[in-house]
């Protein structure tokens, strides 16, 4: 049983780590995109003090995207820091040492209890950034269709790559909350089992002396 438990624990911790890394990458790319779109539109405003009205919604969107992505990066990095300690401890565990495995389980449960809200926030960050990236793809798509950049030229190809990346990461961002939901569902169930276990432990303690 302990080997199965250890393997399952390893797989889960690694899956969560991969999920947080994917979130970090998504957030970093969103931040880069929002800066790449935002800065050229802000330059005329900063230089001439003139802001074109048609650029206002995009600027608002870019600003929101920037703030959400930054927040998303901070949350992911905070989760990653604490979680990494557990993964490192797990790597040192002897597969036959049931006590050490139990220690990692206690650490993981304590981590989930403490970070439940942050993990749920991660899902919202991912959802909002996904939507932001899909919306940000609209002007790119419009530029591509109206032939702002000549098709086949370097700028056209770059535009196409940019659009593909935007759409890819945007859809991934919208899908990520489903994976996070599966994670929280699994852990909520585990927390409820641990509460049952704690009740039994309480009766053991009450039974003594």
């Amino acid at each position: 049983m302990k080997t199965r438990t250890l393997n399952r624990l390893k797989l889960e911790l690694q899956s969560f780590k991969a999920l947080v890394i994917a979130n970090l990458v998504g957030a970093a790319l969103s931040l880069a995109f929002s800066m790449a779109y935002g800065v050229p539109k802000l330059i005329p405003f900063m230089v001439e003090g003139v802001l074109e009205i048609q650029n206002l919604p995009y600027l608002g969107l870019i600003l929101v995207g920037f703030i959400v992505a930054l927040n998303w990066i901070i949350t992911s990095a905070e989760l990653m820091g604490t979680h990494d300690e557990i993964v490192k401890n797990l790597d040192k565990v002897d597969p036959d040492d049931e006590e050490a495995i139990t220690g990692i389980i206690v650490q993981s449960i304590a981590f989930y209890r403490e970070n439940q809200i942050k993990i749920e926030k991660l899902a919202w960050g991912s959802r909002i950034t996904g939507a932001f990236l899909l919306l940000a793809a609209v002007p790119q798509l419009r530029a591509l269709i109206t032939g702002v950049y000549p098709f086949g030229g370097v700028e056209g190809i770059a535009q196409l790559f940019g659009l593909a990346a935007n759409l890819g990461i945007g859809f991934a961002g919208l899908y990520a909350p489903t994976v996070i939901h599966r994670f929280t569902e699994t852990w909520d169930m585990r927390i409820s089992f641990s509460e049952e276990a704690n009740e039994k432990l309480s009766s053991i303690l009450e039974g003594t002396q």
Binding site: T5, E12, S15, E98, I101, T102, I105, V179, K200, L205
Partner: peptide, 25 residues
């Protein structure tokens, strides 16, 4: 005297990872 508590704790917490659904990507 702590052995029954420690054993029960270990058994129940190890079981948390063999009961219910698991999470993987």
């Amino acid at each position: 005297s702590a052995k029954p508590f420690l054993d029960a704790f270990k058994e129940m917490y190890l079981e948390l990872f063999s009961r219910g659904p698991d999470f993987k990507l």
